[in-house]
Amino acid sequence: MGARLEGRRIVVTGAASGIGAAVARLAAAEGARVACLDRDAAGVAALAASLPLSGYSAQVDVTDPDAVKRAINAAAKALGAIDGLVNSAGIVALGPVDEMTIDTWRKVIDVNLTGTFIVSQATIPHMRNTLDAAIVNIASAQALMPIAGASAYAASKGGVQSLSKALAAELAPAIRVNCICPGLIDTPMNAGLKKAPEDGPPVPLDRYALRRWGKPEEIAASIVYLLSKDASYVTGATLAIDGGRTFH
């Protein structure tokens, strides 16, 4: 691989699987030392051990401010500093709005939106004095074009997109902040969408101009670009990587 992130120190949440794991692997292959955070302690420990450069791993719940602060402080100490953050931790819950419980609503908002805020807030002080610091938040194509049955998820990811723009305005020029909106990506979180539910067919690929599922590595490639100096004039941007769903 190349060395677009040589010398960089990157924190990735949700790193045990899916997009987060793909980001950690590619960032390390591009020369970064990576701190891998996830609720799955064994998963992130195994991932961190497999990376080509020494890094750090920790089990953490992104909705717990105290635990997040401890993990971020430990990551900064282990890496020497933090100059990049990828907020990839997330969950999904689908179903009719009139059947959704308030507990489900709150959990989705807490993990996807509040978790992104908590991790960013804990990490920003470590990034202010580094060069070309960058945050990449992972929202969703649902933030741009919601579908029926995704009220909590779409609301949480729409919030991530708006939060990204607010942070970009507030933290410039010291820290760049951008947002990725993936479409239908082949990850463990989306595995259930490949099977036809009892009341209908699987997700129809004719909504997607490219007529296929995306790969985590395709999302990771764009995130590494936004973390790198190649994107030094990019902040406050929302990039849809969704196979053409939101224009199709």
Results as ranks from 00 to 15, higher is better:
residue 195 K to D: 13
residue 6 E to K: 08
residue 164 S to R: 05
residue 55 G to T: 08
residue 167 L to A: 12
residue 191 A to Q: 12
residue 229 K to C: 01
residue 109 I to M: 15
residue 149 G to Y: 02
residue 206 D to E: 15
residue 248 H to Q: 13
residue 220 A to S: 11
residue 68 V to C: 08
residue 110 D to A: 15
residue 49 A to V: 08
residue 38 D to N: 01
residue 51 L to Q: 06
residue 33 R to W: 01
residue 14 G to C: 13
residue 22 A to L: 07
residue 128 R to M: 15
residue 68 V to L: 04
residue 237 A to G: 02
residue 43 G to Q: 00
residue 85 L to P: 02
residue 187 T to G: 06
residue 127 M to R: 08
residue 215 K to T: 06
residue 74 A to T: 12
residue 43 G to D: 00
residue 47 L to V: 04
residue 192 G to Q: 12
residue 31 G to Q: 06
residue 123 T to R: 02
residue 125 P to A: 11
residue 67 A to Y: 03
residue 66 D to Y: 01
residue 229 K to I: 00
residue 127 M to N: 14
residue 203 V to H: 03
residue 183 G to I: 01
residue 138 I to V: 14
residue 141 A to D: 05
residue 206 D to K: 00
residue 43 G to C: 03
residue 217 E to D: 15
residue 194 K to D: 06
residue 228 S to Q: 02
residue 42 A to W: 00
residue 62 V to G: 07
residue 116 T to I: 08
residue 45 A to P: 01
residue 232 S to A: 10
residue 139 A to Q: 01
residue 99 E to Y: 08
residue 144 L to Q: 07
residue 246 T to Y: 06
residue 181 C to S: 13
residue 150 A to Q: 12
residue 101 T to F: 05
residue 45 A to H: 04
residue 236 G to V: 03
residue 69 K to W: 09
residue 32 A to M: 13
residue 126 H to E: 09
residue 95 G to D: 14
residue 241 I to W: 03
residue 194 K to Y: 12
residue 152 A to Y: 09
residue 208 Y to E: 02
residue 198 E to S: 10
residue 191 A to T: 02
residue 18 G to Q: 02
residue 201 P to K: 03
residue 232 S to E: 11
residue 51 L to Y: 06
residue 39 R to Q: 10
residue 45 A to Q: 12
residue 141 A to I: 01
residue 167 L to G: 03
residue 87 N to Y: 02
residue 182 P to Q: 04
residue 226 L to P: 07
residue 117 F to P: 08
residue 223 I to R: 01
residue 131 L to V: 14
residue 140 S to A: 04
residue 212 R to W: 08
residue 78 A to L: 11
residue 132 D to L: 10
residue 12 V to R: 03
residue 25 R to L: 13
residue 100 M to A: 14
residue 82 I to E: 06
residue 149 G to I: 08
residue 199 D to T: 15
residue 197 P to S: 04
residue 179 C to M: 09
residue 177 V to S: 07
residue 20 G to M: 11
residue 154 A to P: 09
residue 32 A to C: 14
residue 31 G to F: 09
residue 48 A to W: 00
residue 179 C to R: 03
residue 66 D to F: 05
residue 147 I to G: 05
residue 225 Y to V: 05
residue 169 A to R: 14
residue 106 R to N: 15
residue 33 R to A: 13
residue 171 L to N: 04
residue 95 G to K: 13
residue 71 A to C: 11
residue 238 T to D: 01
residue 243 G to H: 00
residue 148 A to M: 04
residue 29 A to I: 06
residue 102 I to T: 15
residue 56 Y to F: 15
residue 6 E to Y: 05
residue 210 L to K: 04
residue 34 V to N: 08
residue 6 E to M: 11
residue 154 A to S: 15
residue 150 A to M: 07
residue 26 L to H: 08
residue 134 A to P: 11
residue 222 S to F: 10
residue 3 A to E: 14
residue 58 A to M: 13
residue 52 P to N: 05
residue 23 V to I: 11
residue 144 L to Y: 10
